[in-house]
Nucleic acid binder design. Sequence first.
DNA 1: GGTCAAGAGTTGTATATACAAGCTTGCTTG
DNA 2: CAAGCAAGCTTGTATATACAACTCTTGACC
Lengths: 256, 256
Amino acid sequence: MRLYIQVRVYSAHYPVLGMTMTQVKTAKYRVIKQHICEKIESGQWLEHSKVPSENELTEQFSVSRMTARRALQELTEQGLLVRSQGSGTFVANFKSQSSLLEIRNIADEIHERGHQYHAEQLILNAVKVNEEVAILLALKAGDIAYYSSVLHFENNAPIQLEQRFVNPKLVANYLEQDFTQITPHAYLSSEAPLTEATHEVEAVLASEDIGRLLAISHITPCLQVKRRTWSSQGVVSLATLTSPGNKYRLGSHLIF
Amino acid sequence: MRLYIQVRVYSAHYPVLGMTMTQVKTAKYRVIKQHICEKIESGQWLEHSKVPSENELTEQFSVSRMTARRALQELTEQGLLVRSQGSGTFVANFKSQSSLLEIRNIADEIHERGHQYHAEQLILNAVKVNEEVAILLALKAGDIAYYSSVLHFENNAPIQLEQRFVNPKLVANYLEQDFTQITPHAYLSSEAPLTEATHEVEAVLASEDIGRLLAISHITPCLQVKRRTWSSQGVVSLATLTSPGNKYRLGSHLIF
DNA sequence: GGTCAAGAGTTGTATATACAAGCTTGCTTG
DNA sequence: CAAGCAAGCTTGTATATACAACTCTTGACC
């Protein structure tokens, strides 16, 4: 159906055989962003230290000021930099943060930071729910729910344990999925679009089991987010996300 | 010291007597953003409906395409709009993503639970800020900022330690307040209405000092929220809120 | 010597322009 | 008529330019 379009595109812009289809030409401002990110994440540019000015970047990368500016601007909006009219641009002190305002896919989040993501699927089965879970999922105690336990990795280090109960009435094929290929959140979003969500955030100490999975000691404080999501049909799932406090932060940005 | 600067500025740009000092000249792209926000929030532009294209806005507001574009771009980054190359710009389907980490007064929160609230004011003075705080408050290292440390109690048990730096240029009478009578947050809101805020949430172990104040052991995990608030004038304050994880939770409710 | 002024450097806003790239529509053509 | 193409609209990227506004340093003047 749309093949002719692709043919046109390929012939015009991807003439070299074997060339990867993705990001054949990276936008200049993205190159600059990437460069700055690397400097910060590698520790070469410390917090509060000054970042090259727009004019300096203009020369270094042979781009116009507007292009250099765009890189700095976007990194500022993303919270990596702080700018001050008249005095310059500086490395912010908050690095890895995710947005609580958005229900996000942790895989996307990690990819955005330029890091490698993978997941291990620890458990995927059907379980009888206890009373607490039953109430929260709008089921009856003793009913069957689907349960998954997935460990998320950033650069091969465990970063988050996800334990999730899913309402089987609303998501039929949950047990057939492979959550090393698609995150539960991404799958659920495609099956039953979210209409509502609540979060509860608390600080806890990891249990022995969880500590072992996340490779942390038993006195490491963890952020635990309990997320309950609805579709138009009702409560879809109940997720408990546990991350070591020293590796993971939540960030939010409200505008009134 | 810096008065001459202000004089120069006033004479050049604020020639009319009685003219308010704030927002005398609103940036054009902000006007456009405001216009679009109002359309969406008033319901005149429904979800998924098409927003005027860059060229249309260019004509309507008599600006260049780059300026119109900037308005659309920023609203997209803020999640109000969705853009698609080739087809147009549309109202996003996530609207009132309000009350996440709703900026609330802890006193109100405790009263709502039917509990008793009171506060102790530990410190209230002017301090020289270090570089980190200076940057975040848009001051210079060594400048003076106001600092307050207030301990909040729920039913006579300490529930939250609030440590706050305040920009003295924007809130003049901060040191004259009695924060056992009004919370810093409530006072600041009355003085300089908030327009923006960022939060960072992490799980930490309390330091010895903080542990003593909060009456918790040194292995109690704590939720630590760092909140940076803006008014239309700039960064108003920088607050660090620390609460024992077993006594305090953050909740949020998103509706799509 | 302290005050003020000027200048250099920085970010902020705005415009005009050009071309690339993706989507939609409708017309042409076989 | 249907397939395919092209035109026209959309957003995306990039440049060059100009001036405004803020900060800091330097230096001159009183």
